[in-house]
Amino acid sequence: MSFSCCVKPIPLHLHLHPTTTTTSCFNSHLSGTTTTSSLSLRPLVLTRNTSFNFHPKLLLKRSFNTIRCSALTPELKSTLDKVVTSNKIVLFMKGTKDFPQCGFSNTVVQILKSLNASFETINILENDLLRQGLKDYSNWPTFPQLYIDGEFFGGCDITVEAYKNGELQELVEKAMCS
């Protein structure tokens, strides 16, 4: 298997991606279970975006979460459990914080930014297995999906409504302080 397959397909990334990180990607692939049925599936990459997505120096320091799975496997479930509990606020979205690729995702990003919330985003367009698995994980058919304090909060409509009535700000502040 080529190492480059676990690298996020952004040109900038490919040039700057350090070898050490690539190796750790590969190792984490080895730790996952590979069955015959999953051989045809692309490796799944979960990339935690920082708000400095395109700063070359920071990009090098960036940490990666790499996992491999098919739809909502027990492995994906436990990884998602970790992702949503180890970050106060996580947004699974189309595109990135800096380049949302869907109006609904963009709305939620702008709301969170306006609340000065620090949040992680994960681009579900990069992997279809993650995308499908998350629908089951959250029991929610569409994206974006917002998690606060390890719990599914809602999609775009719910976030907008909670933002309007002040509930979101309260929850975000609570999450940031906890």
């Binding site: 029991n139 929610w140 058919p141 599914f152 909060f153 809602g154 999609g155 409509d157 719910i158 909670a162």
Partner: peptide
């Protein structure tokens, strides 16, 4: 709650 209502619609 709103989330549950949306889940019902979904």
């Amino acid at each position: 709650r709103l989330l549950e209502r949306h889940r019902m619609v979904n």
